[in-house]
């Protein structure tokens, strides 16, 4: 065990992967000598050399496109896109190729690629650095999508993602990179994809969140505890495949749902979760479900980001709403 921040835990996971899997290589912009703009690859270039920790030209489609060729020819590329907001030049490679190659070739070529990208807001980043567009990838069949919210989850999920035969989009909430430290297991350590984490158990309301919204949800929940409302908080961890079982079990128990999502509201993952809960647990619901999301406007420059993003106060409000609506 070691006390690590999330970004240190990610670096630790990459170090372990490079050590234990000779086919793993890292590629991206500024990940070598500089150790990544967030230091997620700090020291790895020195340890593993220029052929396994590769600084590439500044070209996202080139990074992701060549990762496909590396993967079909036997390597396991872990590509870093410097910010999720910069991934769009590579979108065609991801949507038209990575997501489909397994289907198109009926498994003839390996297609095991991990794309890591810091994402989301809340760190006063410059304009066009703070998108939360995980929905694009969840919407695309053939990709798995993972979002950790704690240092040890980040390590365990990243190593599990690297072991996956399927391509994984691994989104790292920048806001949580250095938010807190916790004990992280040393060496190889996996958390299986597709399993949510019950952050806290409760009986009145189920709050579902992921990424940087998990601590916001928790804060909202503890606010509500003061009024005697018991909240169950679920951290999805994997957005696709989503852990339906944990969600449905919880909703069946509480009958009330609040979804906290950093992305804009329309067609965010929250919409799909509501549809899924409606289909699978409609008769358990005591009140309409509520979403706490960012607004359907372009991500603003940082002076207004606190107005844009969900807050603990809004979460608490939503909880009060579903509790009052259903009666207790």
């Amino acid at each position: 065990m070691a006390e690590l921040t999330m970004v240190q835990a990610i670096c630790d996971a990459l170090q372990v992967a490079l050590e234990e899997m000779p086919e793993v290589l890292l590629l991206g912009e500024d990940i070598g000598k500089n150790g990544g703009v967030f230091r997620a690859t700090d020291g790895l270039w020195e340890q593993f050399g220029d052929e396994r920790v590769i600084d590439t030209p500044l070209a996202e489609a080139g990074i992701i496109g060549s990762s496909i060729g590396l993967a079909v020819n036997g390597f396991k590329p872990v590509a870093e896109v410097q910010f999720l907001t910069f991934i769009y030049p590579a979108f065609e490679q991801i949507i038209s190729h990575i997501a489909r190659l397994h289907t198109r070739t009926q498994g003839a070529f390996p297609n095991s690629i991990v794309i890591r990208a810091p994402y989301g807001g809340g760190i006063r980043a410059p304009e066009l650095h703070s998108d939360s567009t995980e929905t694009f990838f969840v919407h695309t069949p053939g990709l798995k999508v993972v979002v950790p919210s704690t240092p040890s989850d980040a390590k365990g999920l990243l190593l599990a993602a690297i072991k996956q035969p399927d391509p994984v989009i691994f989104l790292e909430p920048m806001k949580l990179y250095r938010a807190f430290k916790e004990e992280v297991p040393t060496g190889w350590y996996e958390i299986p994809l597709g399993s949510a984490r019950l952050v806290q158990t409760g009986t009145d309301v189920t709050i579902i969140a992921w990424g940087a919204m998990v601590p916001v949800a928790m804060q909202g929940a503890s606010e509500c505890e003061k009024s005697g409302i018991s909240c169950e908080v679920i951290d999805l961890r994997t957005l696709d495949p989503v852990d339906e079982e944990t969600i449905i079990q919880s909703v069946t128990k509480t009958g009330r749902v609040v979804i906290v999502q950093e992305a804009p509201r329309t067609l965010g993952l929250g919409s799909e979760l509501m549809a899924m809960i409606q289909e699978q647990a409609f008769y358990s619901l005591e009140a309409p479900m509520v979403r706490v999301t960012s607004y359907d406007v372009p991500v603003p420059m940082y002076a207004l980001e606190d107005d844009f993003r969900p807050t603990a106060e809004k979460v608490a409000q939503a909880v009060y709403k579903v509790v009052q609506e259903g009666g207790r």
Binding site: S66, I68, G69, L70, V72, N73, F75, T105
Partner: peptide
């Protein structure tokens, strides 16, 4: 590889396979 329909996308992919080699 299977036929590539989106134009030019196979070019960086071929680069990657060469890189692996």
């Amino acid at each position: 590889m299977p036929p590539t329909v989106p134009i030019a996308t196979q070019i960086p992919q071929a680069v990657g396979a060469a890189w692996a080699s």
